[in-house]
Deep mutational scan, measured.
Amino acid sequence: KLATQLLVDLAEGCHTHHFNSLLDIIEKVMARSLSPPPELEERDVAAYSASLEDVKTAVLGLLVILQTKLYTLPASHATRVYEMLVSHIQLHYKHSYTLPIASSIRLQAFDFLLLLRADSLHRLGLPNKDGVVRFSPYCVCDYMEPERGSEKKTSGPLSPPTGPPGPAPAGPAVRLGSVPYSLLFRVLLQCLKQESDWKVLKLVLGRLPESLRYKVLIFTSPCSVDQLCSALCSMLSGPKTLERLRGAPEGFSRTDLHLAVVPVLTALISYHNYLDKTKQREMVYCLEQGLIHRCASQCVVALSICSVEMPDIIIKALPVLVVKLTHISATASMAVPLLEFLSTLARLPHLYRNFAAEQYASVFAISLPYTNPSKFNQYIVCLAHHVIAMWFIRCRLPFRKDFVPFITKGLRSNVLLSFDDTPEKDSFRARSTSLNERPKSLRIARPPKQGLNNSPPVKEFKESSAAEAFRCRSISVSEHVVRSRIQTSLTSASLGSADENSVAQADDSLKN
């Protein structure tokens, strides 16, 4: 292990032709098999893994070397290190390495390699500790012929580059190093199909959405987006994914797998022009299946994007999809995704031109529960009313008269009656009930004795009459309010007539 670390330190600071010789020695160290011998017992696995620490030291050392060589000349050094790393990870899946030390190597290698970024000039870069990406002036992410390196360097940008540029090249004859992302992409596909350690798979799935944002990485080298989509959909639809995973937390289920895969599918929607129609349908189907899991909100957001990006695919699945959405409970976490999906859909009339009455009724059935102001915040309630109004205007004229009683009944049950079921009123009724029952229970537990009763009969009569009056008032709060309003209006009217009579009498006395 110490000798391997010494080789790594020497290679990191070497800029001459001896660098390749040092890498040859490190490569021989990495070539050791990580498969346990067949006769190895389970209690000896930890000791055997400790004997392979030099392999881990070599791989982690290459990660440090690549981070240094990416910004220094010659660029061919970075290319050689990158290829060695990718080849080593491929061996893991070729020979099915399952030892804990092998999983640790893959975890740290993917953690580093999935941080690679590219700008519009195809320059590769890595983020620093502050998250700012520094791009290399010597390494690009696409394949290029050595003699055409300078031509590639002087080509115009596709868009303004992001991030601070690296140091300027030493001279005009500098050759750019090619670090094609397709090599890593193929290893990522192998990981999605064969990885057995949940920690490694979770890391890859968590980092892929951010990497897919940099389309330069994908399009400048032959990366098959179709295969990526197929691998992701197979993970969700195939039963073998959960069987092969180990190291998963207790209670791990298909729902947890959906939570990890759906963000990658959402990021892949922007590549729909490069996906086969069959793959697009598979993607939409997987998102529909996710509606029954805890990732339902993410799936609804993804389907909203699909309705804009892939209208030809979503239009066929939309009638059944809208009916499925009615089975989702009206909760605060689902309110905004569902209502925004319906609001977006209302502005795309070509998608729902074939809707029948059942689909329009489903839209109103989804939106009406969110009009309850005692359960949802003001934004959700306003958005629900907006969706109902928009869809009522957009639905066909023959359907409107049939939906009017349905909508008014839903609004009455969710908006008007919600004020009668407020917690304050319920607590008031509970308190009044307890007050009504309390005197009775006290009389049963403690019967009054005439000799020891010091309270006069008049006081008892007053208290009983007050309790009886309170019971009468607490029967119905709404009736009490109505009666008080009527009494107030009658009182004001009587006072007004009394004032008029007094004024008339005063005038008569003055005349006399």
Rank of each mutant, 00 (worst) to 15 (best):
E53H: 06
L99F: 03
E145C: 07
T68C: 10
G238M: 07
L201N: 00
L85V: 08
L232F: 01
L188D: 00
V187M: 06
S120G: 07
K153C: 13
L236E: 01
D130C: 07
L242V: 14
L236S: 03
L121T: 11
I218D: 02
K240L: 06
K152N: 09
H122A: 04
V216T: 14
R244G: 05
S178C: 12
P74Y: 03
S211Q: 09
S237W: 11
L91G: 11
L73W: 13
P209E: 08
V225S: 02
V133K: 03
R117T: 05
S103W: 02
L85G: 00
S103N: 09
D54E: 04
Y181H: 04
E243D: 13
L116E: 02
R244N: 09
P249R: 07
P239A: 09
S182G: 04
E53I: 06
E243L: 09
R246P: 02
G125A: 06
S224V: 05
L232V: 08
R186G: 14
V179K: 02
C229P: 01
R134F: 05
H122M: 03
L183Q: 12
F135P: 04
A58Y: 00
G238T: 14
E53M: 08
L228E: 01
Y143T: 07
V204F: 00
I105V: 05
Y181K: 02
G163D: 09
G177A: 14
G251Y: 05
S155P: 10
I89H: 00
P222F: 03
P222N: 09
L176G: 10
L126M: 07
P161K: 11
Y181R: 02
L176V: 13
V133L: 08
K94S: 11
M144V: 10
H92V: 00
L63A: 09
W198K: 00
L62V: 04
S136M: 01
H95D: 11
Y71T: 03
L228Q: 00
C141M: 02
V225G: 01
L203V: 11
A75I: 12
Y82M: 05
S150K: 08
R117E: 02
K129M: 10
D226S: 07
S104R: 06
C229F: 04
D130K: 08
Q194E: 13
F135E: 02
D142F: 02
P157Q: 12
E147V: 12
H95M: 12
G166K: 12
V200C: 04
L232M: 04
P127K: 09
S224I: 04
I218T: 05
D130F: 08
L99S: 07
C139I: 10
D142V: 02
E210T: 10
L52F: 12
R186L: 04
V204S: 00
M235V: 05
G238S: 10
S104Q: 14
F219D: 10
S230T: 11
S230N: 08
T241D: 05
P249W: 04
K129C: 09
K153Q: 07
L116M: 14
A58W: 00
L192I: 13
A78Q: 01
V81W: 01
L63I: 13
P239C: 12
R175V: 07
S104W: 06
R106D: 00
L242W: 12
R117H: 03
I89R: 01
T98N: 12
L217H: 04
A173C: 14
S87D: 13
G238Q: 12
L63F: 11
G177S: 09
P161D: 13
